[in-house]
Design a binder for these strands. Sequence first.
RNA 1: GGAAAGAUGGUAGAGUGGUUUAUUACACUAGUCUUGAAAACUAGAAUACCGCAAGGUGUCGUGGGUUCAAAUCCCACUCUUUCCUCCA
Length: 426
Amino acid sequence: MIDIKLIRENKELVKKNIKKKFQDHKLQLVDDVFDLDNEYRKLKYQADELRKDRNTMSGKIGTLMREGKKEEVEDIKNKVKDINTKLLDLEEQEYELSNNIENIMMNIPNIIDDSVPIGKDDSENLEVKKYGDPVIPDYEIPYHSEIMEKLSGLDLDSARKTSGSGFYFLTGDIARLHSAILSYARDFMINKGFTYVIPPFMIRSDVVSGVMSFNEMDVMMYKIEGEDLYLIGTSEHSMIGKFKDTILDSEKLPYTLTSYSPCFRKEKGAHGIEERGVYRIHQFEKQEMIVICEPKDSVEWFEKMYNYTVEFFRTLDVPVRTLECCSGDLADLKVKSIDVEAWSPRQKKYFEVGSCSNLGDAQSRRLGIRTNNNGEKYFLHTLNNTVVAPPRMLIAFLENNYNEDGSINIPEVLRPYMGNIDKINI
RNA sequence: GGAAAGAUGGUAGAGUGGUUUAUUACACUAGUCUUGAAAACUAGAAUACCGCAAGGUGUCGUGGGUUCAAAUCCCACUCUUUCCUCCA
């Protein structure tokens, strides 16, 4: 959500940004909201004047009553009643206008960073850099769920019985590996100076609507029946919600947090052939990082954050690359975004395992996350990034650490979390 | 789940329908005094929005309602504290 003042002052900039994102159908919205805003301000002035009259007149009644001037009181009462009738209509228009304006503003995309490559959709995302050798072994690597099943680590059949499709039982060493990765990720981020947080896994509707659009909400979120609660789709939801309507002490900035949570997603819509197994499921676990910082520092933090993920994957012997989201693929709230993709030696291509985003002040404006810096108040910048989401990450991990005999190498950094074994054997 | 009390500016805390334009204290900012500080004294100061400004409007947990007028009365909800009940 951008500042409406930007539209008042520089409509063309906002329009140019929309064109960069190939959303030409939204160009009209800028003119519409500009007009509505003017209308709203005129109306507000009128209504404020009426409210002013009402207040002064009502104020007089108190004095007149004490003086016992009943007739005058009745006269004024009637006048105020008239004002209220007029106001009723104006207030309804005022409410409607401000709602319309807000709805449109939600649909006007955030101003993207100058460095974002221009492109229509994900096919035009740009590779930034490769890390590690994308090795293609001379033996065949089975589908990840097969690897896991051979190691008695995955039971999808039972999960279908208890919960339906899109769920899994992890067992034995694979389950332990899953936890080990999360524990390692937690300690990895703590060592980078981040504060570990376990947030609520359910949030209220007002927080949900603060962090996502109604559309996203319907597609992603599970609602708890009979309660005003939703299961979180990512810990970012709780973590950003935590700061809703707060003024943060400028001396305590930046807030660098790493949170763990299970994530619940409906995943409405068709799934591709490569989404069998544990690639796309209703419930997974994730270690996330969140930074809330001064606007001037967000570019620097963005760089640091996706590099942490790259470094994390490299310590687990998984080759990765970074892919920059082009203008057309960038979600409306985002200023800039880079995906971290892991190498799949089976598919012989990279696939997404994490996403790092700089939201500028769009999210904080929407939620009211500000700082007070020597009396000057302004919105902060928010960023989020995946450290690791194990079930999907396990795919990359297993494929890249797979030996021809079906065993799995455990990289050194993970061994303390795996009972010091260096291999999972069949 | 049940009962009681409560939610007011950065903090504490008064305010039970109309000079509340939200008392007061602490913390805060500026000034006087001082080599500097402390203390004392003087002044300023909640917040969002509209407005070039003067000024205006809204906001006393949230949402409704009553009234000419609501921090104050009524209803619902949320949260906090204490107690009972239940529970990992």
